[in-house]
Nucleic acid binder design. Structure first.
Length: 103
DNA sequence: GTTGTGACACATT
DNA sequence: AAATGTGCCACAA
């Protein structure tokens, strides 16, 4: 069980219609500073379709402006499809932020 | 084994 | 408000 495994576990646990931040995933994985590792883990994305990387956003609810696995607009599309309202690459975390306590 | 870089987060300037 | 610097961990060269 590596850090990546833990990270993937948390990401895969994100319910539909919700979005989690890298810091959130990192904290759930066990360390609040793995934010970068989380990004890297999703970057390699060994199990596409299984890991909803589009539900992972930065701490401001903003989608990754740099790479975004193919296009920020695609993330917006997917998130909207899940029921998350996306505004120019940003989501309302106050409304859509995944609550790990619900699990 | 060391150096450099990165889908981030936080503090300071 | 935006940009810069620093810290963290993992991976590539």
């Amino acid at each position: 069980m590596n850090s990546f495994e833990l990270i993937y576990e948390q990401v895969k646990r994100i319910p539909k219609g919700k979005a989690a931040t890298y810091g959130q995933i990192a904290a759930l994985a066990g360390n609040p500073k793995w934010s970068r590792v989380v990004g890297y883990a999703l970057h390699v994305n060994p199990e596409p379709g299984v890991i909803p990387c589009h539900r992972v956003v930065d701490r401001n609810g903003r989608l990754s402006p740099a790479f975004a696995f193919g296009g920020m607009n695609v993330q917006e599309e997917l998130l909207r499809r899940e029921g998350v309202e996306v505004r120019e690459g940003h989501v309302d975390l106050k409304l859509y932020r995944w609550d790990p306590s619900s699990n």
